[in-house]
Each structure stands twice: as structure tokens, then as C-alpha cells.
């Protein structure tokens, strides 16, 4: 392999490694709400092909909304992902905006992980979780 081909290959690898991907977004209402619904908005097809939200549960504990989301890795390779919860009140205003940071987590191949979080206060009725690849 000549130097030109090698450098082209290396720059391709660097570009791929450096590419930050966006993620998927899931929102859900609390189970007490008659309009309970959960849906998944996928912004990134390649990511959604290998990482998927397999379960979303929520409950009230001590007046605070507690959420558990199961994320599964369909591929056999480990995936480094980040997730972030955001919280909304009954009027769909974000509660404690910016208080939650992105949490890094390693999702091992063919395994799942539970992302758990508790609402910052009792005014929260809805949540949103964003997941993206590192």
C-alpha cells in the first residue's frame, strides 16, 4: 500500500472516529394520566438500529415521579452512550431547567441497562429522555 492510500485510509478512520452522532428521544406521560402514551422519536437511524428503548416505566414515590427506562444494545460490540432526563410540569413547562447533565454509560454488547431518575420536585408530571452515542 502506498503512502497516499495509507493516509487516505487513516483520514477516513479519523473522520469516522471524530463523528459525533445525535441520538434518540423518548417522551412519556405518567401512568396516572388518562392520556398516558409513550413514544420514541429517532433522530439517528444507524444508532436506532443497534440501540433501542425496550421498556419505559414510571411511578410516583413520595409524591415524586420516578422513571425507569431499559435500553438494549442489539449489536455484539460495546457502545458508549450518554443520556439526559428533562422534566415538565402539567403545563408542559420545563422544571429545573438545565439541572440534569448528560450521564455517560457503557452499554455492553447484547445487553441492556436501566436508566433511572427521580423528578426534582412534585410538580413534575411528564419526562423526556435523550440518548445519544458518545
Amino acid at each position: 500500500m502506498n503512502i497516499v492510500k495509507l493516509s487516505a485510509l487513516l483520514s477516513g478512520v479519523v473522520l469516522l472516529a471524530g463523528c459525533a452522532t445525535s441520538g434518540m428521544e423518548a417522551t412519556g406521560k405518567t401512568e396516572g394520566d388518562p392520556a398516558y402514551a409513550k413514544h420514541l422519536v429517532i433522530h439517528n437511524e444507524p444508532l436506532a438500529n443497534v440501540i433501542t428503548i425496550t421498556d419505559m416505566r414510571s411511578r410516583f414515590k413520595g409524591g415524586l415521579l420516578e422513571v425507569n427506562i431499559e435500553l438494549s444494545n442489539l449489536s455484539s460490540s460495546d457502545k458508549s452512550i450518554q443520556y439526559r432526563f428533562s422534566w415538565y410540569d402539567g403545563d408542559n413547562f420545563e422544571v429545573e431547567q438545565g439541572s440534569r447533565s448528560w450521564i455517560p454509560v457503557v452499554l455492553h454488547g447484547k445487553s441492556s441497562v436501566n436508566m433511572q431518575a427521580v423528578a426534582p420536585n412534585s410538580s413534575v408530571t411528564t419526562y423526556k429522555v435523550n440518548v445519544r452515542e458518545l
Binding site: G62, R100, Q116, V118
Partner: peptide
């Protein structure tokens, strides 16, 4: 991460 885990844990 520490703050989030501790707060969630004590509240639940």
C-alpha cells in the same frame, strides 16, 4: 453524576 445519584437515592 454523584449529586444526581445521591439525591435520587435519598428521595426514594
Amino acid at each position: 453524576q454523584i449529586a444526581a445519584k445521591m439525591v435520587d437515592s435519598v428521595l426514594t
